[in-house]
Amino acid sequence: MNDVAVLPLRFQVGARTLASIPRRLVRVSYSLQTVLAGHVTAIGQPTPSSDGFLVTSMPESQLERVGTAGLLRHVRQRYMRYYVDLSTGMAGWEAALSGATRSGLKRKAKKLVAASGGTLDVRRYVSADEIATFHPLARAVSALTYQERLLDAGLPSDAGELLRLAAADRVRAWLLFLEERPVAYLCCTADGDTIRYDYVGHDPAIASLSPGVVLQAEALRDLMKEGRFRWFDFTEGEGQHKRSLATGGVACMDVLLLRATLVNRVALRALGGFDSAVAVAKRAAAHPTLARLSRQVRR
């Protein structure tokens, strides 16, 4: 079991946190292999020093099997945990993509090639020495991204852990260059035959060139050519490029499991009401009339 840590219960609208309630929680995360197998281990009851658990990537079909009787339950989000079966090989993977995705990848790569003077400049980094070269270049890109500015999810400023993993051959990283300037990065760490989608970002100034999805596709082709890993794990959360490039997905959710105290009941009731209000607002904003009004207001 993981250690107890102070984790905030966030009241969020998109990437923006409006308020938070600190709770002492044990974070429980399930590996892709566990999610695919569909047999999670029992979580049990929280220790006296904790308020409960934050469980991520819980397969929806397994929630009743984790042994959490008596705990308050709140589902924070539901999503597909997407993955790529790298054993299909490049031909098999590309054949499984939709026609629109294949043509879109070709079109986006062609635009980048044209913008960079006729070449698609993607560079691969594996060894500890190579990761030492990669890190400051990728950090310069990460500092520009919304992942770092809004989500505190940029590439770590300290390269120590990445260098340690690279020395054990557990890192694969790529940079996309445009006119000799790094504009997008992807850094993945490995566990056994699974490699994870850990850190990613691109320069927002060239977002119209779709550098992130082009780099992702090139990285997947590189991994299939290498042949070492079986699975590429897109981890928690959804996204258009995950859906379009994946070969499969498992319905998962992130769940809070808290002690049945008065404070926790009030916190979860407030959080549930807030999440419901945000969901209603999102559905309302998607209505064609309101969408048109929003566009007119922004003009």
Rank of each mutant, 00 (worst) to 15 (best):
M80D: 00
S87V: 10
V84R: 02
R81C: 04
G70R: 04
L71H: 00
Y83G: 01
L97R: 08
R73A: 13
L97K: 06
V75L: 06
G99T: 15
L97H: 12
L86I: 09
G92T: 10
R78H: 01
T68G: 12
L72P: 03
A69I: 02
R78M: 03
A96S: 15
L72N: 05
R76Y: 08
Y82W: 15
R76S: 14
G70E: 08
G89C: 05
A96R: 10
R76L: 15
V75H: 09
W93K: 09
G70D: 12
M80P: 00
L97T: 02
Q77V: 01
L71M: 11
Y83M: 05
W93H: 13
M90K: 07
A69F: 07
D85F: 07
L72V: 09
L86H: 13
T68V: 12
T88D: 00
A69D: 08
L86D: 02
G92F: 15
Y83D: 06
A96N: 02
G70T: 13
S87L: 15
R78W: 08
L71A: 13
R76F: 06
V75Y: 03
L72T: 09
L86K: 07
S98E: 06
Y82P: 05
Y82M: 09
T68F: 14
W93S: 07
V75P: 06
G99N: 10
A96Y: 04
W93A: 07
R78I: 09
T68Y: 13
M90W: 14
S87M: 06
D85T: 01
A95H: 14
G92S: 10
T88Y: 04
V84K: 03
R78T: 09
M80E: 04
R73L: 11
Y82Q: 13
S98F: 06
H74D: 02
V75C: 10
R81Q: 14
Q77C: 05
